[in-house]
Amino acid sequence: MMAGTTDSMKKTCATIATLAWWTIIDEFRQRSVVIFFAACAAFMFVMRGCYQASYVVNGEALDAATIVSHATFHVVAAGVMMLAALMAMRIFKRERDDGTQAYLLSRPIARWHYLAGKIAGLWLGSTASMLALHGVLCLMAFLNAHVVSPGYLTASLLCSVNLLLVVLAVMALSLWIPDFLAFLAILGVGVVSFIGHGVEAVAQNPMVQSAMQQSGAQGAHGLPWWKAAWILWPKLGGLEVAASSLIGSESFSAGALVNPLVNVVVFCCVLGALCYIGFSREEIV
């Protein structure tokens, strides 16, 4: 009995791993993904000179390596998030149209195996892309500014949770609404998340808080709707900013990481369940 269960689990894992590997191969054969990587190479080529520049703000000289490392980290993380959304938005439609779903699901494969394989493939594929790009940037920082930043790749790994959320959200939404709308919706959620995080950071500044108290902005009783919405909003920006504090000499606070990480993981679970429910009802043609 036990041996049978273990054997069945092994088979399931092997099937999901096979489907994930095929997803990665198929995605990286797409022309749009190749174009994206060409754009990334061009971006890195442009960025290589920035490590030699000097940056002065209010007459104070800033560390070029730290500034450029942070900027490139965020640009690559945001870019790969967009790539993950682009890959995820068309996966169901493309595989329905080219017959992939029919040939896979006419085999002894459960729908959740197929779904798990697709999600794992997209997530691992985009995470590997982000790690590779961040790895190249890390190497560039070392070669140009002789700076070693061990936290760079750890931060990159933490940001991969954001990629999982993006993949799940776009896949789940594309089961109910047109693909491009699913992509735009997640783009909107991401933009609001980053702007909201910036506003939240500014609002925590003591000067801003005292200004708000003087103007009576916090005088209202109860929780305003926008504050409640923000608490429940996916914290993509918060997680990325918290992860980026691992880079360079900034002080890293584990406390600041926990809240957005838990938020994103909870969203992943909910969206994963929605994806499963939606795909279980899909008609295969």
């Binding site: 099937t15 096979t18 095929w22 080219d98 017959g99 992939t100 029919a102 040939y103 494969i109």
Partner: peptide, 25 residues
């Protein structure tokens, strides 16, 4: 065999057959 037989354009006939055989269980 489906009413509308299709093979993903990026695969070769051999790759398609191999994939189908691998998932045969």
């Amino acid at each position: 065999l489906s009413e509308q037989p299709r093979i993903p354009a990026q695969l070769t006939g051999w790759e398609y057959l191999k994939r189908c055989a691998q998932l045969g269980g």
